[in-house]
Design a protein around this nucleic acid. Structure first.
Lengths: 338, 338
DNA sequence: GAGTGATCATTAAGCGCTTAACCACCCTAC
DNA sequence: GTAGGGTGGTTAAGCGCTTAATGATCACTC
C-alpha cells in the first residue's frame, strides 16, 4: 500500500480556507487574493501535493493522456528503430506538460481497434495517434464514430482527419534520379506490404518516375519488412533474369538483410550492386559498407503530431501539417555502375 | 468532443434497478440474483458499456496502469532493440487484463526520478518497473519511501525489492571458456558504463574467470553503448600494444560497430579477430559475418516482471524470480585462433 | 444612508464508480 | 406467533477534484 498523498483538503485545512479556494489558487484562476494564493501554493509545495489524475479526469473529463498503438508482430518490433525514434519524439513534445503516453503493442489489426475502443470507453485517453494507415483504414472510421481526437502520422487520406506527413514522393524521385545519374537503369524497389498507404504512394511515385526516366527494367516487389522476407525476395530478384543493379528498400532492416545476401552471392557493393535504405538509422551507419538511406525526420514528426493532437483535443480545426521533406543521405552502398 | 459513453446509471435506468445493483452485477459479486445479473450484463453489453478508469481509480484507489521509464538519450534509444523487445514482452503479460502501460523516455536520471514521483502523486500507476539499476540507486530509495510497488529488472541488490533476473555470470563464464577453447588468450571485454550494476557483475565475473583460466591479457574497457564510443575504444584497443584476439561486448550495437572497425583495419573476422555480442538481436543476425551473441530472454523477462509486479501490487510477498540463464549463440564472428 | 459593484471567499453539486450499512421480504424453527 | 437467518435488493457516503451559484465584506457613489 503506497504512502499517504496529500489532497487539496489537507492543503485547505493547513491554510484555513475551503477546498474550493485551494482549487482556484492552484489552477491560477481568479477567485482568490494574491496573498492567499501564494500562501496556498507554498503549502501545496511544502506538502508535495500533486493533483490526482483520476479525480481531475472525473471532474473535468480530461484524461491527460494520449494513446499510441503499434501493430507489429513482436518479432519485427525490436529490430526497427522507427518506433523508438517516434516514441522519443513524442516524449519530447509531451515533456513538461501534464500529458502522459499510453502505449500498446498488438499483433493484429482487430486488437488495435479494440485497444482504441477500450481506451475511449475507459476515458483513459484524450486522443490517439494513428500510424501505418492502410487503404480505407477502419481506424479512421472508428475515431470518427467515437469522435475521438486523432492525428494520423502519414499523408492525408481523408480530409476530416488531421495528419502530419512528409512527402515521400519527392524522395523517391530524388533517389531514382540519383541512381540514374550513377548509370543505373535496372532498379528494383523492395517495398513493404501493399496495404499500407505509404507503400502505395512510394510505389506510385517509383513507377511514374521510372517511366518518365525511361527505365524499362524498373519494378516493385513486396516483402513484409522482416529480414527473412527481404533476404528471400532479394535472392530471387538477384538470381533471376536481368538482375537489377540497384535496389531500393522500404526500411533499414530489409536493406541490411539484402546486403548480407549480396555478399553471400559474391556481389560487391557498390561496385556491382547499389543499395538504398528508407529510414536512415544507426543500423545503416553501422554496417559496412554503410548504407545510403532516405532520412525522414521521424522524431520531429512524432513531436509535431503530438503538438497537433493536443491542439485538436483543445478543439482546434483540422490541419494537415507537412514536415520537412525526406532527403537522401548518400553513403558507401551506392556508386557508379561498373 | 467525444461521443457519449454509457455509465452505470444508464444501465440502471434501463434495467430498472439501482446503480449499486448494477455495480455488484458487473463485478460478479454477491448481492444480486442470477437472473438480474444476467439481465444487467446483457444491457451493459448492448450499450457497449466500459468502466470509466478515472471513476474506478477514484473509488477503489487502483490506477490499473503500470509505469516504465526508460532513461536513455534519444540518440541511443532507437538503435537498441532491447527496449522494444522488453516492451513487447511487457505487453504480452498485460494483454487481456485491465492494466495499461505508461511509458516515459527521459534523458537524465533526475527526470526519471521526477517521473516516478509524479506518477505516484497523480496516482496514475499502481506500480513501476525499474531497469538499469546503478549502485545505490536512488530509485530504490524512492519507491521505498513512497511505498510504491516496484519490480527491478535485474539482479537482486537489496532484498526488500522484488526483482526478476538472469544470472549473467554464468554466460560470462561460458563465453570465456568457449573463447579459450578456440585458442584465445588475449581477450578484452568492452563493457557499458561502470555505474550499472549489471556491468559490474559481468566485469567481476569476467575478471575472476579470466584469472581462473590463467588469461593474463584479459582486461575490461568501457564505452557508453553507443556505436561511436565503441568504435573509438575498439580502434584504440586493436591498434595498441598486444592487441586482443577476441572482443566481448556489452550490447549488440557496440559489437556491430566494432565489426566495422575491424574491417577498416583490415582484420578479418573471425580469422584474426573474434567478436561476441551481448543481447542477441536481429542486428546480430543481419550483419556479415553474423555475430555470435549471448542471448537473454528479454521479452520473457519483461512478461515475468509484469506478472510479479501485479502480484506485488496485490500485496504478495517480495520474491526474486530468476529466469532462464542466458546462453551463447555461436555464429560466424567467432572462430579458432589462427 | 441606501444602492451598486468589485473582490474574495464559501457552499454544494456533480463527475462515475464502489461498498458498508440498511431494509424488506420470505422461509424455517420452536 | 415471534425470533432468527438468509436472499435480493436499495441508500448513501465517499474517492479528490472542479465550478456554478451564492454570500459576506468593503469601497464608492449619488
Amino acid at each position: 500500500m503506497p504512502a499517504k498523498r496529500p489532497t487539496i483538503s489537507d492543503i485547505a485545512r493547513a491554510a484555513g480556507v475551503s477546498t474550493g479556494a485551494v482549487s482556484y489558487a492552484l489552477n491560477n484562476r481568479p477567485g482568490v487574493s494574491e496573498p492567499t494564493r501564494r500562501r496556498i501554493m507554498a503549502i501545496a509545495d511544502r506538502l508535495g501535493w500533486v493533483p490526482s489524475s483520476a479525480a481531475r479526469s472525473l471532474s473535468d473529463g480530461r484524461a491527460n493522456a494520449i494513446g499510441l498503438v503499434v501493430d507489429r508482430p513482436a518479432r519485427v518490433i525490436g529490430v526497427e528503430p522507427y518506433f523508438m525514434q517516434l516514441i522519443s519524439g513524442i516524449q519530447g513534445a509531451l515533456a513538461g506538460g501534464p500529458t502522459s503516453l499510453l502505449l500498446q503493442v498488438t499483433d493484429n489489426a482487430a486488437a488495435e481497434l479494440a485497444a482504441y475502443r477500450r481506451w475511449w470507453g475507459e476515458r483513459r485517453v484524450d486522443g490517439v495517434l494513428l500510424v501505418d494507415l492502410v487503404q480505407d483504414d477502419p481506424r479512421v472510421e472508428l475515431v470518427r464514430e467515437l469522435r475521438l481526437p486523432a492525428v494520423v502520422l502519414g499523408e492525408p487520406v481523408v480530409d476530416d482527419v488531421p495528419c502530419v506527413w512528409t512527402d515521400d514522393a519527392v524522395a523517391v524521385v530524388e533517389v531514382l534520379e540519383y541512381l540514374v545519374a550513377l548509370g543505373h537503369r535496372r532498379i528494383v524497389r523492395v517495398a513493404g506490404p501493399t496495404r499500407f498507404v505509404h507503400t502505395q504512394t512510394r510505389s506510385r511515385a517509383f513507377t511514374t518516375t521510372a517511366a518518365r526516366l525511361g527505365l524499362t527494367g524498373a519494378r516493385v516487389v513486396h516483402a513484409d519488412y522482416s529480414d527473412e522476407a527481404a533476404a528471400r525476395v532479394t535472392r530471387r530478384v538477384l538470381t533471376g533474369g536481368e538482375p537489377p543493379t540497384a535496389l531500393v528498400f522500404d526500411n533499414d532492416v530489409m536493406a541490411v538483410s539484402a546486403l548480407g545476401v549480396a555478399q553471400e552471392l559474391g556481389l560487391s557493393v557498390p561496385e556491382q550492386l547499389s543499395l538504398v535504405a528508407w529510414d536512415d538509422s544507426a543500423l545503416c551507419r553501422l554496417v559496412r559498407p554503410a548504407l545510403s538511406a532516405v532520412r525522414r525526420p521521424i522524431a520531429e514528426r512524432g513531436a509535431e503530431a503530438v503538438r497537433l493532437l493536443l491542439r485538436v483535443i483543445d478543439g482546434a480545426a483540422v490541419e494537415q501539417v507537412r514536415t520537412s521533406d525526406p532527403e537522401l543521405v548518400p553513403r558507401a552502398s551506392t556508386g557508379p555502375l561498373r
